[in-house]
C-alpha cells in the first residue's frame, strides 16, 4: 500500500503539490487525472523517491520514504517499475540490454538466465524476438512497450505509468491499455497511471483520482466519475474551456 499525507512541493516558485493526500491500495490500478501542469508526473516521482517533498509523508508498504538514505531508498525502489513518458530507453543499448539492465546490475538472476527473463518480458508486451533491435529504430508504441518490459523485468510489486498512451494512435493506445490491465491481472501489481486520456483511464482504472490545485479533489470508480456533479470533474471529462478550471 502507498499512503501520501499532506505532501507539499514547490518548484520554480510555484506550489505544485499543496497538501496532497492519497491512499493506493495493494493490487489496485489507480489513474491520476488532471489538467497539464497540475503535478501528476511530480506525484509519481515523489512516490518512487526521485523527488523529495518539502513537507508531508509518503509510506510504501509501511516504510516512510521521506528522509530515507539513498541506499535504503534503492531497496524500496527495487519493488517498483516505472514507465516514463518518453519511455526513457537507453540509446546506447539494444532493446534486450535495456530490459535486462536492472537484472544485470542487481544480480537478481544468474547471468545465463537473464536472456531468458528478457525474452519472457518482451513476449509479455508482444515484442518476442526484439532483443537485438536498436532503440533508435523503434516506433513510439514499440518504445513504450520496451519501457514496459523493462519496468516488469524485476517482478515489481508496484508499476508507475507516466502518460503511457500519450502520442500514440488509438489502436496502439488500446494495446498499451490492455497490457496495463493484463499485467495487473497476471502479476497482481499495484499500478499508478498518470494520464490525460479519459478513454484509457476508464479502461484501466479501478479508481480515478482527479488532481487540481496540488490536491486530489475527487476520487472514485469510473462509474462514479461519469456520474459525478462535481464541477471540476465535469469540466475535465467534458473537455470544456469554460468552468472553474482555468486553462494554463
Amino acid at each position: 500500500m502507498i499512503r501520501l499525507r499532506g505532501v507539499k512541493k514547490r518548484l520554480g516558485g510555484k506550489r505544485v503539490l499543496d497538501g496532497l493526500d492519497l491512499d493506493i491500495e495493494r493490487g489496485e490500478t489507480i489513474v491520476v487525472l488532471g489538467p497539464s501542469g497540475t503535478g501528476k508526473s511530480v506525484l509519481l516521482k515523489h512516490i518512487i523517491g526521485l523527488m523529495i517533498p518539502d513537507e508531508g509523508s509518503i509510506e510504501v508498504d509501511g516504510v516512510e520514504i521521506v528522509g530515507l538514505g539513498e541506499k535504503a531508498l534503492d531497496e524500496v525502489r527495487k519493488n517498483f517499475g516505472m514507465l516514463f513518458q518518453g519511455a526513457a530507453l537507453f540509446d546506447s543499448m539494444s532493446v534486450g540490454e535495456n530490459v535486462g539492465l536492472a537484472l544485470r546490475e542487481h544480480r537478481r538472476l544468474p547471468v545465463a538466465q537473464i536472456p531468458v527473463r528478457v525474452a519472457e518480458c518482451l513476449a509479455a508486451v508482444g515484442l518476442k524476438g526484439a532483443e537485438d533491435l536498436r532503440t533508435a529504430s523503434l516506433s513510439g508504441g514499440m518504445r513504450k512497450r520496451v519501457g514496459l518490459a523493462r519496468a516488469i523485468a524485476m517482478n515489481p510489486d508496484f508499476i508507475l505509468y507516466d502518460e503511457p498512451t500519450t502520442g500514440l494512435d488509438p489502436i496502439t493506445a488500446d494495446v498499451i491499455d490492455q497490457l496495463v490491465r493484463s499485467l495487473q491481472e497476471k502479476m497482481g501489481v499495484t499500478s499508478v497511471v498518470v494520464t490525460h486520456d479519459l478513454h484509457s483511464a476508464y479502461k484501466v482504472g479501478d479508481r480515478l483520482a482527479m488532481l487540481y490545485g496540488g490536491r486530489v479533489v475527487f476520487i472514485g470508480t469510473p462509474d462514479e466519475v461519469r456520474a459525478t456533479r462535481d464541477p471540476l470533474v465535469r469540466q475535465f471529462i467534458e473537455g470544456s474551456s469554460v468552468g472553474p478550471i482555468q486553462p494554463v
Partner: peptide
C-alpha cells in the same frame, strides 16, 4: 540522458 529522463530511469531502477 538527463533531459530525456534516462538518468531518472536509472535511479528508478535503483542504479
Amino acid at each position: 540522458m538527463k533531459v530525456t529522463e534516462q538518468i531518472d530511469a536509472l535511479r528508478a531502477m535503483a542504479i
